[in-house]
Design a binder for these strands. Structure first.
Lengths: 224, 224
DNA sequence: TTCGGTAAGATCGTATACGATCTGTACTAA
DNA sequence: TTAGTACAGATCGTATACGATCTTACCGAA
């Protein structure tokens, strides 16, 4: 119970969330309440609650009397998520820019350097994506609006669930991304205007989206 | 059951949501599972699920082993919500602008005219707020990104819950709002640039926020 | 008086049980 | 063969029951 201070419902929520973002549960997989309950050694009631919570975040699709499935990968859904993320990340970056300390700036440059080095080796999309989130999270250190920060995290979770991290499908996008990161840091260091930083950060994400969509359009020319 | 095609959990969700947005349940009110279950003639299980869903939307605050309360009114929370709303409403307005038909534009002008007429009579904040949402919703008719539209609705629900609709506390803001609406419509009709429309719509909301915060600072000079 | 502890009431957290609904399959009739 | 039906299995939806936890009020000791 108080083993870790978490209710069983919370445990179930974390378990399934981790399962989805880690790829253990893949898009389209069914999430059967009783099975998960057995896995975790609890009854279905807390599991049910956890699943419904994930539904609110659009991580699972729930059909009455049928069951839950991990929300499927779908270019349209991907586009919705990326656009939303561009919006909230862009604004967050601009909002946090004046609050970024020199120390944080150094840390961010270090992370981006790690990313740059990754480009030379055998490219590892997973690791690259992880560093990418770390980079942006560092810039959001002193976020003045927790609601918006929460939306950023929800977007990231959703992307992880979709497994269509841009870098997985369009690795050629990675070098551009690193360059844009540096540009972003320069703007912040120079104390650029709010709207300038916002536009840069927003476009940073939108560029990734368009790279993926172009890629997808070429791969599936039939689907209009 | 299939009385209306809704599960009991959904019924409970709608009931409590309506109770909160309508003001029947006021901020700080306790939401006791068993009481609500009795009211609705069902067991606590569906009610519990409904409450947890509302928690995800920050409409209720849930404390372990203690219970749920309607999220309280708090200038900080208000600020968070308004800022988030400014962000998503502003972007939505710009995104939808090219899709707004002449017919919709006329409808929006009609709604704004109703609002203008309200200014002369005994001012009714509730009605004014309702028309205000109708106005903006009309502009979002063909919203290309349902995720973002969803965020707008969540923000509206939250504001309704907080009952600190700006117009209730700062009625003097209402005339400015009507003027800004007209300016917004002109921009849309003229096919103004994306960023111009976005900035106008965003500031429209932010102005309301600042009007309230100024008002509050004057009323409570001690709490900085 | 005041502090600490204990017991009672209220409420939540979860397990279990069972009815409701969906899905797929096998069987029958045309 | 094929369409339709009926049955069985799987899974969800909800009610009920009970243990866990919090809050409060009361009481005794310093």
């Amino acid at each position: 119970m108080t083993l870790n201070g978490l209710s069983k419902a919370d445990q179930a929520h974390q378990h399934v969330l981790k399962g989805i973002t880690s790829g253990q549960y893949k898009p389209g997989d069914r999430l059967v309440l009783s099975s998960i309950a057995n896995e975790l050694g609890m009854s279905v009631v807390p599991v049910r609650e956890a699943i419904r919570r994930l539904q609110t975040d659009n991580l699972v699709t729930f059909e009455r009397n049928v069951g839950a499935t991990v929300t499927g990968i779908d270019p349209i859904e991907y586009q919705y998520t990326m656009e939303t993320l561009a919006l909230v990340e862009g604004y967050s970056t601009a909002l946090c820019a004046p609050l970024v300390t020199a120390q944080t700036l150094t840390k961010a440059r270090g992370i981006n350097q790690q990313m740059r080095e990754l480009l030379n080796e055998e490219f590892a999309p997973e690791l690259f994506t992880e560093l990418n989130e770390k980079f942006h999270l560092a810039l959001f250190e002193h976020h003045p609006n927790p609601h918006i920060l929460d939306l950023v995290h929800r977007g990231w979770n959703r992307l992880a669930a979709l497994r269509s991290t841009t870098f997985t499908f369009v690795p050629s996008r990675a070098p551009d991304s690193v360059v844009e990161h540096d540009e972003l840091l320069d703007l912040i260091a120079d104390g650029a205007e709010f709207l300038v930083i916002e536009a840069a950060a927003r476009n940073h994400r939108l560029n990734a989206m368009h790279a993926y969509l172009d890629h997808h359009a070429k791969a599936n020319p039939k689907s209009f």
